[in-house]
């Protein structure tokens, strides 16, 4: 007597799709998310989001910037983490690869320990939401983490800047912030 109208093969995918659809709607109607705006890159694919992060002016290095990124979710979401890739101009940041991919511990799946130095406590958990991810990303712009650099140059220059030895980091960051605002 059982009837399942939907093919079970897509059950997981459709579950993730529904979850994402809901979260997208919640986030685009939320009023308490200053500086974050989200939307779909392609109307028909709820698994790829386009994200715009407007960094607060108080932020030390990146204040005023206007960064665009793509947030790509796997079909296994929320059990596996999404991937965040910044679009050109890629921010000059110790935790962002030159390709634009973001390296942040909460987006690393719990099982693959290729980085070796993270404890499981810092990695992905299914209770994370796009909202918590993006808030973490924004805080990463306020406090870049030079412990596990994805961009070695940036990390080195950041340390020099913190030590007061060189202003090169500031200059490079300002340049990419300017670019993100559409200046030449």
């Amino acid at each position: 007597m059982s009837s399942t109208p939907k093919p079970t093969s897509s059950a997981q995918t459709s579950g993730a799709a529904r979850l994402l659809q809901r979260q997208l709607k919640e986030m685009s109607t939320a009023k308490d998310l200053p500086g974050i705006s989200v939307g779909l890159l392609n109307e028909n694919n709820v698994f790829v989001w386009e994200v715009v992060l407007m960094i607060n002016d108080d932020c030390k290095y990146y204040g005023g910037a206007y960064f665009r990124a793509h947030l790509t979710f796997p079909p296994e979401y929320p059990h596996l983490p999404p991937k965040l890739v910044f679009q050109a101009p890629v921010p000059f940041h110790p935790n962002i690869y030159a390709s634009g991919e973001l390296c942040i511990s909460i987006l690393h799946p719990p099982e693959d320990d290729k980085y070796g130095y993270e404890t499981a406590a810092e990695r992905w958990s299914p209770v994370q939401t796009p909202e918590t991810i993006l808030l973490s990303v924004i805080s990463l712009f306020s406090e870049p983490n030079d412990e596990s650099p994805a961009n070695l140059d940036a990390a080195k220059l950041l340390r020099q800047d913190r030590a007061g030895e060189s202003k090169e980091f500031r200059r490079r960051v300002r340049k990419c912030v300017r670019e993100s605002l559409g200046e030449d």
């Binding site: 007597m1 059982s2 009837s3 399942t4 079970t8 093969s9 897509s10 059950a11 997981q12 995918t13 579950g15 079909p75 296994e76 059990h79």
Partner: peptide
């Protein structure tokens, strides 16, 4: 298997005391 292939959705419908195990 549903994690790797995304198959068989409702395997453990009511394992924690839920009313339905053969979920229609």
């Amino acid at each position: 298997p549903s994690m790797s292939r995304d198959g068989g959705g409702d395997g453990g419908g009511g394992g924690g005391g839920g009313p339905s195990s053969a979920a229609a």
